[in-house]
């Protein structure tokens, strides 16, 4: 048998070579898929069917049957009222996490935290906006008024 002739040092060498080979294989193949997808590709694959290819909320799934329409990211009314954290939470855990509609699905089991961060940055680019506390306060006051 082969193993009988394998001395200890040869065995260790073999182990070393094998682990290096494995490691190389892993690093060439593993991150390739996740890292390649840029924000645009992610958005068009996972979000555009509802939020529209341009982010205007007019995706093919935005039918009149929905109780809540997908948000228009280009409108100055929508994203400025959300902090970055709220946007990330919404994407990761779904609308209900931030008291939004369940029609906004959770993506945390499909997208990595880095990918969600990339998407958040893309949304900020689409709306050309940052979080605006004044706008958020105005929106909250408006919502409270409507509730009365």
């Amino acid at each position: 048998m082969m193993t009988k002739h394998l001395t200890l040092s040869n065995y260790i060498k073999l182990q070393l070579i094998l682990s290096v080979a494995c490691f190389c294989l892993v690093i060439t193949f593993l991150p390739a898929s996740a890292a390649q997808d840029n924000g645009d590709a992610l958005y068009q694959y996972y979000c555009a069917q509802c939020h529209g290819e341009k982010g205007d909320g007019k995706g093919i799934n935005a039918t009149e049957d929905l109780p809540t329409q997908p948000k228009d990211f280009t409108s100055p009314k929508n994203l400025p009222v959300f902090t970055d954290e709220q946007i990330v939470n919404t994407i990761k855990q779904g609308g209900p996490k931030e008291q939004l509609s369940f029609i906004m699905p959770p993506w945390g089991d499909i997208l990595s935290d880095e990918q969600i961060d990339v998407l958040k940055k893309l949304l900020r680019k689409i709306c050309k906006c940052q979080y605006d506390p004044a706008a958020a306060a105005a929106a909250a006051a408006e919502a409270a008024k409507q509730k009365q």
Partner: peptide, 19 residues
């Protein structure tokens, strides 16, 4: 879901979902 469709077009709620 990812066992069958690994890229996950269908956002079935998993561990990280709120609902």
């Amino acid at each position: 879901p990812r066992r069958y469709y690994p890229n996950g077009g269908c956002p079935i709620p998993g561990e990280s979902a709120f609902n």
